[in-house]
Simulated assay, not measured.
Amino acid sequence: MHKQYDFSEGKRGAVLSSTGKTRITIMLDEEILEYFRKYAEAQGSGYQTMINAALRQFIFDQSKPANQPVTEETLRRVLREELHTS
């Protein structure tokens, strides 16, 4: 070890930056945070990672067309597939 270190070029914060991620402050209900912490611990994962995955899944689910009528083309395709497997 050195007797003295030069920190004049040092920077505060995380040593490694996460690419593709942004650090924010967010207010969550205690129950929500408690749920994700317990669930993450049981799964052996990080709770912030799980919150991110839940938000991503919500966005994915919202982008799917909901309550769309079945088209004739889709109905014919499904019937052909079902008749073929029977």
Rank of each mutant, 00 (worst) to 15 (best):
R76M: 06
V78A: 15
M50A: 12
Q57K: 11
T49S: 13
D6T: 08
L28A: 01
E34F: 03
I51N: 00
K21T: 09
Q57G: 02
L33H: 03
H84A: 15
L83R: 13
P65M: 07
V78L: 14
R23C: 04
T22L: 07
S45M: 07
D61T: 03
E81Q: 04
S63N: 02
K38L: 05
L75F: 12
H84P: 09
F60T: 13
Y39D: 14
E31N: 01
D61Y: 07
T19M: 06
T85E: 09
Y35Q: 04
H84C: 07
L16C: 05
L75R: 06
T49W: 00
T19L: 11
T49V: 01
Q62G: 11
S45D: 08
E34P: 04
R77H: 13
Q4L: 15
F36I: 03
R77G: 05
L16F: 13
R37K: 04
P65E: 01
V70Q: 08
A53P: 08
F7S: 10
I51C: 10
R37N: 04
G46F: 07
S17C: 11
T19H: 14
R77N: 11
A54H: 09
E81G: 10
Q62T: 06
H2L: 15
Y39T: 14
I26M: 06
A40G: 03
G13E: 02
K64Y: 05
Q48P: 01
D29F: 04
A66I: 10
K21W: 07
E9R: 09
R56V: 13
D61R: 10
F36K: 00
R77T: 13
G46D: 06
E41T: 04
R56S: 10
T25K: 12
K38C: 13
Y47C: 08
Q68M: 00
M1D: 07
I24H: 05
A53S: 09
